[in-house]
Structure formats: structure tokens, C-alpha cells
């Protein structure tokens, strides 16, 4: 008979939530580091200098063509042999960060290349330095353009964090396996885990969407998008 999960699992819920907290930590830290690294990768890959571009292209290609789980295993189990020992948590961060950065560098590169050359020319013709053109025109516009894609990658990252359970990081999924070894109730535990992941993803997607709306110029305060008279007509 179906064993309703509220009977067994809830006493383990705090333990699961503690794992979820680690999942959130993992994703937030790798999100920030991955975005920064991805940005610099993109800039480097847009460089006219081949010596800079080529190794970065190769790096991104390798990351994109191997599974994240293999990268994590390599970082955690193989790097120590090369003298680099990371705790499970930081090995997880490293893997997730490198992975996200590689993918985001593609997104950023495309967004930066897509910025209107006319607006860049306008900025230059006002006397801006190349750095100022980047800072004041290219980055803000490319940033806005890739916000929706960025949101998608962040939610994907949150779910990818489950993979670091394989290198013994005590996040949500690993806590779930511990609960199961205790209760033998895999079905209800996994349902609980799925619900927690769903809530985390759903909420973060909403938050990202709100940020996106807030940052889009035409949605900002004090802007008149529709002639006021028409607005009033419509309200009646």
C-alpha cells in the first residue's frame, strides 16, 4: 500500500533542508564566480590576438565537450595527484564554476558582438576611450541582451549542483541518499527532494525574471510608454 510520505519523511525534512542550503550556497558561489570568469573568457576570446584567443577557445571547447560529472571527478580525485588538493565543497565549486564560465563565455561573446556598431561609433566619436565605450555602452547593452539566457543558465546550475553529491559534498541529493539508507523509503524521499528542487528553481526563476524586468530600460520608473490620454481611455 502506498505509504503517504508525510508520515515518514517529515522528521528528516530539516536534514534535507540543510542539504538544500548547501545546494544554494554551491549555486550562488559558482554563479558569481562563473559569471565573472565567463565574462573575462568572453573578452579574451574576442581579442584580436591569436595567442590569447586560441588557448581560451580550446579550454572552452574541452569543457563543453566533456560531461560535468567527469570534470568533477577529475578535479576531486585526479588533481590531488598533481598536488592540488581541494575539499569536496571547493572541488564542486571549481567544477561548476569552470563549466558555467565556459558556457556563459559563449553567451557573452555573442551578446557583445551583437551590440550595435553604430552606437559604439557614436561613443567613440564623442571622444570616449575604448575602455569607456566598453564600460558605458557595450557592457550595459550586452548585459541586458543576455539577461534572459543568463536566468536559464542559473536555474540549470541549481539543478546541476546535484551532481556534486558524487564527490561526497553534503548537499541536498546526498542528504537524500543518507535519509534513504536510514528509512529505506526511497520513493517518498525522492518525491520530497524533487519538491524542494522545484521550489528552489521556481522561486529563483521568478526572482531572476523580476530583476530582468527591473533592469529593462523601458520598464524603468518615470517612463511614459503610452501617450497618457490613451492610457486613461483604456482605463475607463
Amino acid at each position: 500500500m502506498y505509504n503517504f510520505f508525510f508520515l515518514e519523511v517529515p522528521e528528516h525534512l530539516p536534514f534535507l533542508l540543510k542539504g538544500a542550503l548547501v545546494t544554494i550556497e554551491l549555486s550562488l558561489i559558482s554563479m558569481i564566480l562563473g559569471t565573472l570568469l565567463g565574462f573575462f573568457l568572453a573578452i579574451g576570446r574576442l581579442s584580436p590576438r591569436r595567442v590569447l584567443r586560441l588557448p581560451l577557445d580550446v579550454f572552452v571547447e574541452i569543457i563543453r565537450d566533456t560531461p560535468l560529472i567527469v570534470q568533477l571527478l577529475l578535479i576531486y580525485f585526479s588533481l590531488p595527484e598533481a598536488g592540488i588538493v581541494l575539499s569536496a565543497f571547493w572541488a564542486g565549486i571549481a567544477g561548476l564554476t569552470l563549466n558555467l564560465a565556459a558556457y556563459l563565455s559563449e553567451v557573452f561573446r555573442a551578446a557583445i558582438s551583437a551590440v550595435d556598431p553604430g552606437q559604439k561609433a557614436a561613443a567613440i566619436s564623442l571622444g570616449m576611450s575604448p575602455v569607456a565605450v566598453y564600460r558605458r555602452v557595450v557592457i550595459p547593452q550586452a548585459g541586458l541582451a543576455c539577461l534572459p539566457t543568463l536566468g536559464g543558465y542559473f536555474v540549470a546550475l541549481l539543478k546541476d549542483c546535484s551532481l556534486v553529491s558524487f564527490i561526497s559534498v553534503n548537499e541536498l541529493l546526498r542528504h537524500a541518499t543518507i535519509v534513504i539508507s536510514d528509512t529505506f523509503d526511497s520513493m517518498n524521499t525522492y518525491i520530497m527532494v524533487a519538491i524542494i528542487y522545484f521550489v528552489m528553481s521556481f522561486v529563483s526563476a521568478r526572482i531572476i525574471r523580476q530583476i530582468e524586468i527591473r533592469l529593462t530600460p523601458s520598464n524603468r520608473r518615470g517612463t511614459i510608454t503610452i501617450p497618457l490620454t490613451m492610457d486613461k481611455e483604456g482605463a475607463r
Partner: peptide
């Protein structure tokens, strides 16, 4: 450049 700014055919305002 700052003393001889340019006005373009397609305006090129910062969007």
C-alpha cells in the same frame, strides 16, 4: 573627437 562630434544618418542614440 570630443570637440568635433559626429551626427549619423541612423542617429545611433544609446538605446
Amino acid at each position: 573627437r570630443a570637440r568635433m562630434p559626429m551626427v549619423f544618418q541612423h542617429f545611433n542614440l544609446f538605446s
